[in-house]
Write a protein that binds this DNA or RNA. Structure first.
Lengths: 222, 222
DNA sequence: GATGATTTGTACGTATGTATA
DNA sequence: ATATACATACGTACAAATCAT
């Protein structure tokens, strides 16, 4: 569940989504030029929807537009990615703190169910399935803030970091530790200790970030 | 200092900026339709740059695009504005916590200078000038996080809330209390107590939010 | 430093889809 | 329910600027 219920079918949106995926997956390398005509040809469309897609991507920071000099994929230096992870950690911490004070019994029940269900996936070592539950787990917490704006902000940022998180879960026993950290957060929520929940969540996210950092340390980036 | 040093002169950017101002100032009421042709005529341009400007605004959430049904100014319900203020408060809190641990002597010196300078403005009751220093004060803290992404996020959100903050500073003795709250935050920073600084900053921002809430309670909105 | 090629920025026409009578 | 009106979405053409020779 992203944002709008009704189905949309705009070419510019389709192109935007495909470009987002390609940038996030690294298929389009940072710094590489995005030629409007080439893209139009590749997507079998005209330049107009391509331009609109690029403008939308620029607004979310995925590409950089230099007037009359073309569009390039934004430079995602390791430093910048780490900055984004840290920011995400802070926002997650803020979310869980608010959620602790505002979560409804129904939402809490759903959160516990998700956590319980993910247990077996950890045992099985099913990283992909765990990633799905992990996504739901965090989104449920965002919504429990009962702050629609904060929820949207967290979802947007999480989407932007998605490509980098994928690699991270496969580092060592990260899945098992992730589960344990979720558990600790849930205990703090149950005790109504928002500050503790925030602290634990921040640590949880920074651990994920560190796992990513170890990954890029001896790898492609930088 | 916003973002790019080189001069830009794209029609779509000019139009976007003007529309942003008009929406923020309320000249364009929430929910009102934005007709491409009308806007094009008004700005003396064609529909193309207008469309691009609208797409950029949609990406930042200022307008809502419903495919083939036109563009409308996003509904800024009082609830949504309050949600944005709360989110801003959390981000400011996160910033000042990080800044406490990372601020350089030079940055700290600048922060103290700004605070000291604003003292006389408070005494004089010069709200507009104080607002300027206030802006610098907060921006200096953002930058002291030494997290470029978080700094951009905070600046963007602050810009979006700017229109609503203006009214807030004129409520009662808000300026005096704002100064005192800044003072408390600085003491916490000086003591290296990031958590306390965050708590105080959150309270500071929520006070501003509450001032706004009192304003709209018996007023135009809602 | 000037000139040509390429690419972006802008304008406008047409068709499709939505809303209204 | 059908048709009409209207605004948007997309395509294409032209203008202007950048960069390569």
């Amino acid at each position: 569940m992203t944002e709008n219920g009704a189905a949309r079918a705009l070419l510019s949106d389709q192109i935007r989504n495909r470009l987002t995926d390609e940038i996030a997956s690294g298929a389009l390398a940072p710094g590489s030029a995005l030629d409007e005509q080439q893209l139009a040809a590749r997507f079998g469309a005209s330049r107009t929807p391509v331009r609109e897609a690029l403008r939308q991507l620029a607004a979310t920071g995925l590409v950089e537009v230099r007037p009359r000099r073309g569009v390039t994929v934004a430079q995602m230096t390791p430093q910048r990615v780490m900055d984004m992870f840290e920011t995400m950690a802070e926002i997650e911490a803020a979310c869980v703190r608010l959620a602790t004070y505002r979560i409804t019994p129904l939402e809490r029940s759903r959160l516990l169910d998700l956590h319980e269900a993910s247990k077996s996936l950890v045992a099985r070592g099913d990283v992909d399935a765990y990633d799905g539950f992990n996504q739901d787990f965090h989104e449920t917490i965002y919504r429990a803030t009962h702050n629609a704006f904060m929820t949207e902000l967290a979802l947007t940022l999480r989407a932007r970091l998605h490509a980098f998180r994928r690699t991270q879960l496969r580092q060592g026993d990260r899945v098992v530790r992730s589960y344990d950290e979720h558990d600790a957060v849930l205990v703090a929520i149950a005790q109504g200790d928002g500050d503790a929940a925030a602290r634990l969540m921040r640590a949880h996210m920074l651990n994920a970030s560190a796992a990513f950092g170890r990954f890029i340390a001896g790898s492609a980036l930088d």
